[in-house]
Write a protein that binds this DNA or RNA. Structure first.
Lengths: 109, 109
DNA sequence: CTCATGTGCAACCTCGTGGTTGCACTATAA
DNA sequence: TTATAGTGCAACCACGAGGTTGCACATGAG
């Protein structure tokens, strides 16, 4: 039951589990790649805070930095989002199987 | 742009973003409904810690308690997992659209 | 070249999260 | 009825997350 896999998943969910970070991800998703300064424009927090959040997102593999002249553009890594979805699928599937087992158990007795 | 929706999503992701909590969810998913004590058996933390985590999961709507005699069984709320998946879908879709816009922009010039 | 703009680094602060221990309460089993 | 297994509550602690400010460093625009 791959423990490393679980850690990666937890990291992704942790990264998405903060309001500010989630808004950053949404902004990237809807408006495309942006720099830290650009992202901090609409936000209620400092650019430095956004930078820290971007580090976290990068650590979780949700975002990829790319030097573009003197600025750094951050783009979304949609593969990780897909991975997270697959992970959730696995849990749901397990639950459904567990429910099935329970139902069969009840019907047999 | 539902801000309340975002908070709910962040709560779900936050709930899943902790290793202990994630293992609890996985355990529930694979072995069906269980009590707090039962869940704390294999874990490396106290029952009280598990209880706290269950409160968080319940707050995020990921788990539902049900009094069963003198013990309380916690069962998974798969709907929330599905909601989370839909949420991620929305972001991916937005990103794909943004990429499409960018490509068109480049090709026009 | 000069200057403005964007980024990086570091120190610092606050507070919530994750965890523990101890005890009181409740309800089932014998 | 009495002992026992399960739950609930509260106080307490350590540490890392989230945020800020200040300044130094690069690099494109004029």
């Amino acid at each position: 039951m791959s423990k490393a896999h679980d850690r990666a998943a937890a990291a992704v969910f942790f990264a998405l589990g903060d309001g500010t970070r989630l808004s950053v991800v949404r902004k990237l998703g809807s408006a495309g790649a942006q720099s830290a300064t650009e992202l901090s424009d609409g936000a209620k927090v400092t650019r430095q805070a956004i930078v820290k959040h971007l580090r976290v997102l990068e650590g979780a593999g949700l975002v990829r930095p790319e030097k573009r002249g003197r600025e750094v553009l951050y783009s979304l890594e949609t593969q990780r989002l897909a991975d997270a979805q697959t992970f959730l699928d696995g849990i749901s599937a397990g639950w459904d199987r567990a429910i099935g087992r329970l139902r069969r158990l009840v019907e047999e007795s």
